[in-house]
């Protein structure tokens, strides 16, 4: 059974490359059962979103102008 430490590593890796089917399944199961890791995953997505805000596009928020 995957632990949280291993899950955090995979939650990062899934943002950089496709995980193996077994890894995907184990991670999915883990995040269903572990609210901490489910939040971690959302927070990883937020980090990416925040980083992409650094490069202005047509939707740049006023606060960055």
């Amino acid at each position: 059974m995957m632990n949280c430490k291993q899950a955090t590593r995979l939650m990062s890796e899934e943002m950089d490359h496709d995980l193996a089917a077994g890894e995907r399944l184990a991670l999915r199961l883990h995040t269903l059962l572990c609210s901490g890791c489910a939040r971690y995953r959302e927070q990883m997505a937020f980090l990416r979103q925040a980083s992409r805000q650094q490069v202005p596009d047509d939707d740049t928020p006023q606060s960055l102008r």
């Binding site: 949280c4 430490k5 572990c34 901490g36 971690y40 927070q43």
Partner: peptide, 27 residues
């Protein structure tokens, strides 16, 4: 951050960030 079995410690388990995108509007 983790217990010896690799699970989050009680006080390091990621907590709810609410609606974090709202922070984008805040300098």
């Amino acid at each position: 951050l983790f217990q010896s079995n690799g699970h989050w410690q009680r006080d390091t388990r990621p907590s709810d960030w609410g609606d974090p995108e709202r922070s984008f509007e805040n300098r």
